[in-house]
């Protein structure tokens, strides 16, 4: 077994001994007369988010109320002929109030708390429902964090996945998200961007390989 101190000391000596000064560095110093280009500014993050998501084959909705969001989910569950929806156990989704209408429509609703075998339920569910910590307009990404009641597999195993995100959580760029964490991340944070996909066989794009292929994001603007 490598001794850590010895390992690091060796590296330390190697970084110090004979420092080579590379002559090549990439472009910018060679073109000082150009003004450095600025990062693009994103004017309306929610609209841009939906645009990016749709370009990736996901579907989005800018809902004016929780009722509208709830209706969308109900319609979707019907359309997909879902038998079971599994959702995060978080306050926002309680407030959404979609559980009752779903049950009335014959869709079983499982909540990620005190489940006997949570992974098996996630594997069986037709629809997964969660919120997101943030959404990124630049890329169409959802930022999912770990936590009690917020099962990772809820967003991964069911073939259809829906996220409900309040408008104020849509940030312009990845950098803005990373800034929010100020050097301390939760144990798991995932940038989830559109449907799962693969181009491994003959570069032919296939959707829904391991994760969900059917991804919906509802951005809720509450007055």
């Amino acid at each position: 077994m490598a001794d850590r101190k010895e390992f690091l000391t060796t590296i330390h000596h190697r970084t110090r001994a004979g420092r080579y000064k590379p002559t090549h560095a990439p472009d910018v110093p060679w073109t000082p007369k150009d003004e450095p280009r600025k990062e693009e500014r994103i004017e309306a993050p929610p609209a841009r988010f939906l645009e990016e998501l749709e370009a990736l084959g996901g579907q989005g909705l800018l809902a004016e109320s929780l009722e509208e969001a709830s209706e969308y989910i109900l319609d979707l569950a019907r359309e997909r002929e879902a038998r079971m929806l599994l959702r995060w156990d978080v306050e926002e989704l309680e407030r959404l109030g979609v559980d009752e209408p779903l049950r009335e429509a014959g869709v079983e609703v499982a909540v990620w708390r005190d489940l006997e075998d949570p992974r098996q339920i996630a594997a069986r569910a037709d629809v997964g429902l969660s919120t997101a910590e943030w959404a990124v307009a630049e890329t169409g990404s959802l930022i999912l964090r770990n936590g009690k009641g917020m099962g990772r597999t809820v967003t991964l195993l069911p073939p259809t996945y829906v996220a409900v995100v309040p408008e104020e959580r849509v940030l312009p760029a990845i950098r803005d998200v990373l800034e929010k964490y100020e050097g301390r991340l939760p144990n798991n944070l995932c940038f989830h961007t559109g449907p799962s996909r693969s181009g491994d066989i003959e570069m032919s794009l296939t959707i829904g390989v391991h994760g969900p292929g059917d991804v919906h994001v509802i951005i809720v603007r509450e007055s």
């Binding site: 990016e52 990736l56 990620w112 489940l115 949570p118 992974r119 996630a122 630049e138 890329t139 169409g140 990404s141 770990n146 936590g147 009690k148 009641g149 917020m150 099962g151 990772r152 597999t153 990845i174 991340l185 939760p186 144990n187 798991n188 944070l189 995932c190 940038f191 989830h192 961007t193 559109g194 449907p195 799962s196 996909r197 994760g211």
Partner: peptide, 19 residues
């Protein structure tokens, strides 16, 4: 623009987590 799943792990599951 970004890979579909960009996953960041900083430690094991936390208190009360089921996966």
């Amino acid at each position: 623009k970004i890979t579909v799943y960009t996953n960041m792990v900083s430690g094991p599951r936390g208190e009360g987590e089921a996966d």
